[in-house]
Design a protein around this nucleic acid. Structure first.
Lengths: 216, 216
DNA sequence: AAATGGCATTGACATATGTCAATGCTCTTT
DNA sequence: AAAGAGCATTGACATATGTCAATGCCATTT
């Protein structure tokens, strides 16, 4: 009786795990298929190279001074990357939610220690690709080169746009721009982190929001 | 006599033109070879796809509202891309000197009209690649996909770094950072354009420089 | 139910940077 | 040689945003 119960539990666990794995890879496949078409054997190959990982809220994925070993695809949850300045203040560089990637590409590509920190803002599910894995995929799946190139092109455009708003817009415009571009993220992360991402103080963001509410 | 003279001149011109063409492509070849190895027939193929162009100081390469049809490799000279804001003030997004690329990738990839302007700050020599050409190259030279991916990776890193300094540094730090990273450009372009690139006013840059000279 | 920690808000005040206007320099054009 | 354009510098002043400190709210933990 005891045994049977244990076994059932185990099977449930294994089933649950497999189901969640399937869902994770399913999102990755859809993500890639938006840009290039892979054969089913190629997709299957990906499952042997990406490392699935679950991570709890507040856990680190990368700590300052470590080498960033992974390009990480977020299949569930929310992470951020940030730096600490001389005064120990956080500056958030990026949020990543489902269907996005996060990494310190500088550290990843050069092998230099990272100045960034990546941690989880929610319990999250990740698919991680190390340099070796990336090379294997590039060797075995020609279209993946194209996929990466196109991903980087999108990224390039987004970076330029962000830089431009950072340089030329007021705090209010930055905020309006943010809630327009990323309404989901605004809901999910604390306001002071959005402020940090926008490069303004939490107090200023609070005042900007008050101001906006007043005028409409 | 008259004829003979004309002919000699013509030959000189043609020779000069060919020599300059060779130099232009030579730089492009070296640029590409830093990242991937191409066969000589592949290199030769590139000369049939890239369009050489000379452009005089102050000429436009892209005007606001036009579609950006070209990815442009600068083999000589200096260009900039910038926007005009609501008050008509210039915001410089990028400088490009020899061995760099310039384009509005958003417009180039989507075919939407550009919000950017690209013009020459010096007489310049360019090698230009339109979308059709890019596709042809990608079809005929597999390694070019890898080259583009790696170029975009470098770009990605540089954008992140720039964004970070824009967000977290003072005017003085931005300036010091700039002259450290791009001493050549500082020499070649007017100071107020550097200010614009750094997102600060020309007056502030002037004061920052004075301040730096005083303290050392 | 009480205690705690994280967070947003608000007010008073400080400051870096922008704006405007004047001056003078240097180089090119006439 | 004169004129003009483009540019860097400087001073006076304006302002957006940051900093510091206090308050109160809400959710989670004990």
């Amino acid at each position: 009786m005891f045994f049977a119960k244990r076994q059932r539990t185990l099977i449930f666990r294994v089933n649950g795990y497999l189901l969640s794995l399937i869902a994770m890879f399913d999102l990755l496949f859809k993500h890639i298929s938006k840009r290039v078409t892979l054969s089913s054997s190629e997709l299957e190959f990906l499952t042997t190279v990406f490392i699935p990982k679950k991570i709890r809220k507040k856990q680190y994925l990368l700590q300052e001074g470590e080498i960033c070993k992974w390009m990480t695809f977020v299949s569930k949850g929310c992470l951020r990357s940030y730096t600490l300045d001389a005064e120990g203040k956080e500056h958030i560089v990026q949020f990543a939610i489902e269907d996005w990637w996060i990494a310190d590409m500088y550290s990843y590509l050069t092998g230099e220690p990272s100045e960034y920190i990546i941690d989880a803002l929610e319990d999250s599910e990740l698919l991680m690709l190390d340099i070796k894995g990336k090379e294997t995929v590039l060797e075995n799946i020609p279209a993946f080169e194209k996929f990466l190139r196109m991903l980087l092109e999108s990224n390039h455009i987004a970076s330029h746009r962000r830089l431009h708003t950072m340089m030329t817009k007021t705090a209010e415009e930055k905020y309006l721009n943010f809630i327009h571009s990323y309404p989901q993220i605004m809901q999910r992360v604390p306001q002071h982190m959005v402020a940090s991402y926008l490069g303004i103080s939490p107090e200023t963001l609070s005042r900007v929001r008050k101001q906006i509410l007043a005028t409409k």
